[in-house]
Amino acid sequence: MKKEDILNNLSSSIGALDSDGARKAIKEAINSNIPPTEIIINGISRGGEIVGEKFKNSEYFLSELIIAGEITKEALQILKPYIEQNKVQVRGKVVIGTVEGDVHDIGKNIVIMFLQSRGFDVHDLGVDVPEEDFIRAIEKTESQILAMSALMTMTAPEMGKIITRLKELGLRDKVKVIIGGAPTTPEFCEHIGADFQTVDPIEGVEKCLEWVKK
């Protein structure tokens, strides 16, 4: 089978939430010596795009995103030994977490799934993350992007405090800040000095891709 056909099988299997098909296609891709970077970009990542498109069109919802995430996770797991051997270049580094006082992780975890499937190195700090942990992680990982999530109106202002702290430490210009979660709005984004706001995980990942391409 041609390389393009194998990668197409992989992306369409992910897009159709066919875990058996995806597993078969990724093994075939490895056996055909397709470089891992190509498998990620033209297979897994494209599969993520199909899922994202269906999500945008309301054909897929959260349950489908979870299944797609599981398939992607398994595909990356199978690919892992080859990624390490071939030193695959990551597209960018992201520190992500739900702010202090908030333990909601649905939106955050979906964004992580899509970021990973698009080749990002993601440092997930989890939920209820104190300000200093975000700062420390940015310094330690030298990430280009800080992604923060909150579901509650009461916890969203924590995002603003973290941005203020970044400014105080002279780190603000080194990272792009993206925020998300039900209570956030473009107006709030501007108010706290973040770079982008969305409640759509696909749109958020597209913005991250745009940032690292520049």
């Binding site: 109106t153 969203a156 202002p157 209570p183 956030t184 709005t185 107006e187 709030f188």
Partner: peptide, 8 residues
């Protein structure tokens, strides 16, 4: 919406 009444 609390985004309007509270957040800002």
């Amino acid at each position: 919406p609390s985004t309007v009444s509270t957040l800002m």
